[in-house]
């Protein structure tokens, strides 16, 4: 069940310039509804000026502690305000929203997932990697970034996954794009991907060419997050569908992306 919830900022850190890692706590753990990997929250920007909420991926959840973590990139007025929050401030959220990634309940030995994240798109993949790890599988994760300074959540991922890095400038890991990493071309049973659209399209094109199931998380601009305003639609094989309710995670076969990136 979705709800409107006030949560307090208990920690905020700057993992890289232009990004903020925000840990929020509910008044009591029981107030935090169950959230699944790939779902998102709608955050009200506490500046009395930004009109619409901002959709932000759930980066991590600790149900025991009643905490929820967001990884935010300063991409404009609303998200900039979030990057400058202080511990003790209250944020108003609508959550949990959307349909996330599906992970098999009891994965067998053939389940060998690859998670591919670019930039702030790594956010929903951390909670996903933890969920997969909790089911006894250590996933492969490729984190793509502009440079070494922009690699996000590396230590957190390393606790639950095999981590591979690519950077555009070669300052860490493989020099190039996520699709250039040798680990990308290894055999995987499924690919989960979140990042800039050109990156997701390149990953999707590879997955389609190699008949690997692939799921991508979209971030179309949205107003309500509830399937009412019909602003965030993506063109799919079934027509215009709301990213907020049918997604944000889509099977690439449902999308109308062309085979070339």
């Amino acid at each position: 069940m979705k709800k409107i919830l006030d949560m307090q900022v208990i920690r905020i850190s700057i993992p890289a310039p232009g990004y903020a890692h925000i840990v929020l706590a509910a008044d009591s753990p029981s107030e935090l509804p169950e959230c699944t990997p790939g779902q998102f929250v709608q955050v009200q920007i506490p500046d009395h000026d930004t009109f619409l909420r901002r959709p932000i991926s759930i980066c991590d959840v600790d149900p025991q502690e009643g905490t929820l973590t967001l990884l935010v990139r300063d991409a404009g007025r609303g998200t900039r305000n979030l990057c400058h929050l202080s511990a003790g401030q209250t944020l108003n959220l609508v959550l949990p929203l959307g349909h996330g990634f599906s992970v098999p309940e009891n994965p067998d030995s053939s389940y060998h997932p690859l998670l591919v994240g670019g930039g702030v798109g790594v956010a929903p993949l951390l909670y996903l990697a933890r969920a997969i790890n909790a089911r006894g599988v250590r996933p492969d994760v490729i984190l793509g970034a502009r440079s070494a300074a922009d690699v996000l959540l590396k230590e957190e991922f390393e606790r639950v996954a095999h981590v591979f890095i690519t950077t555009n400038d070669g300052s860490e890991g493989v020099h190039g794009l996520v699709t250039d990493h040798p680990a990308f071309k290894e055999e995987h049973s499924v690919i989960y991907c979140c990042g800039p659209t050109p990156m997701m399209k390149a990953v999707a094109a590879y997955a389609r060419a190699h008949a690997v199931p692939c799921f991508v998380s979209l971030e179309n601009m949205m107003a309500c997050g509830l399937g009412a305003c019909l602003c965030c639609v993506e063109k799919t094989v079934d027509g215009h569908l709301c990213v907020c309710t049918h997604g944000p995670v889509f099977d690439i076969n449902a999308l109308t992306w062309s085979d070339h990136a």
């Binding site: 009109f51 179309n220 601009m221 107003a223 019909l230 602003c231 639609v233 063109k235």
Partner: peptide, 17 residues
């Protein structure tokens, strides 16, 4: 099917759709 994306823009104290 409605109009193509993008269909929304935030504006001062409101939005365009």
């Amino acid at each position: 099917q409605g109009n193509p994306y993008p269909r929304m823009a935030e504006t001062p104290s409101g939005m365009l759709n």
